[in-house]
Amino acid sequence: MNQIQRLGRATIDTLERLGRATLFLLRVLRATRTLTGRFRLVVQQVYSVGVMTLVIVLVSGLFVGFVLGLQGYNTLVRYGAESSLGLLVALSLTRELGPVVTALLFAGRAGSALAAEIGLMKTTEQLAGMEMMAVDPMERIVAPRFVAGVIAMPLLAAIFSVVGVFGGYLVGVGLMGVDGGLFWSQMRSGVGIYNDVLGGVVKSVVFGVIVTWIAVFEGYDAQPTAEGVGRATTRTVVTSSLAVLGLDFIMTALMMRGL
């Protein structure tokens, strides 16, 4: 009986949390309307969310491209199809790795920082202080961060993909001796603008919304203690990583069916 009660309580807690998160998202979306006159706030957040994440995205993209080039070459050369290396690298990056790996890095680098920042503001009662001064923390703190995350994520994913293709080119053509012209022409004939590039962009926008939403919600919903902020940060990274991977599967399945 105790076990059943515990299961029921866990379910109710989860649902309640989900409901709170949804209501929170609606409030954030409503607060974004007030940003039109205060775009400077968003610019500041794009800096801390996007520009600060750029370095890790660039380095990871380059190395993912290197590895794809090496691995792809070793597999393809067995079938004498090493000229398709460019296609393999570009398709893997634009469709899957670009959006997904960028979202995971984004959750780790920017999401955790967002959650910790907002959580600490709540703990030190800065949010309450703002409300006292009739400044809505939703409009002033949360909405700019949310919009900045949604703007930054697709840009980061695109940069990741391009750098990755470049990395694959360096390894494939520079190191392994694949023909450079074939690398690009195979890539260009095989990668479609709608299915592959646009699909990847749609994915990265969705991931941007999901990761930033989870981050700001966890921060805003954190227990106002040092431990609570820590837990919110951890939960942001874990939840958003799982959400990204799960949603990626669903979106890939939907896009593949649409082909």
Binding site: T94, L155, I159, V162, R188, I193, V197, V201
Partner: peptide, 15 residues
């Protein structure tokens, strides 16, 4: 840089 990357994806990498 982000928009340039998107443009590269559209123009250079895809058909």
């Amino acid at each position: 840089a982000g928009i340039a990357a998107l443009a590269t994806l559209a123009l250079k990498i895809s058909n």
